[in-house]
Amino acid sequence: MIFFKRTLPLVIAFVMGIVAISIYYIPHQAAVDLNDLLSKWDRIIAAFAAFLGVYSLLYLHAGRLKRRQAGWGYSVFVYLGFVVMLTAAIYNNGAGPLVALRKGGAYDWLYTNVFVAADASMFAILSFFIASAAYRTFRARTTEATILLVAAVIVMLGRVPIGALLWESMPELQQWLMNVPNMAAKRGILLGVYLGAVATALRIIFGIERSYLGGDE
């Protein structure tokens, strides 16, 4: 049993990891074809992950409903939304689930008038919280905080037309802040992130990092 639960996944991860890295650097048609084939396999596996995601979401919310956990009413909406959208998608304005999504049906209406509107509104209310947080917490307590504050004000003004109206060079100053100090910091962060990603990938390929196996690995 341990062979299937631990040894085989480790062997698959090692072999596929080494093969995927190697073919990236081999300029031969066979390597290109193999890469194409592996990519297709990956996409098929990724499609099945959607089912896993749906199962996981519904299972989680079923547990909340059973236990009448705080906020269980939201779980009712998860089920309601899932069932309504799925039914509308399968019905597909009378055309059935085997053809491309038809326009003008219930799914189309729900997508435009509920999903898009609700999702966009959720992001829009951020503006209120940002203003409140800025008033309460954005203080020039130290030199570093003052520099950050001044830079934030310049970027906020430079990014909107009113900035140019107040001072003609505001957009250019904003652009310089983004192109020079921002980019220098971003480069450093990105180098660190990607070196970390390479290290983690190697740890997975060589079986040092095994948390993806689940359980007590």
Binding site: A131, A134, Y135, R136, F138, R139, A140, R159, I162
Partner: peptide, 16 residues
């Protein structure tokens, strides 16, 4: 958006 940015900046100035 310009109005929102301006209000946020004014909030920061008043807060400070």
């Amino acid at each position: 958006q310009s109005a929102a940015h301006l209000i946020i900046i004014i909030s920061i100035i008043i807060g400070n």
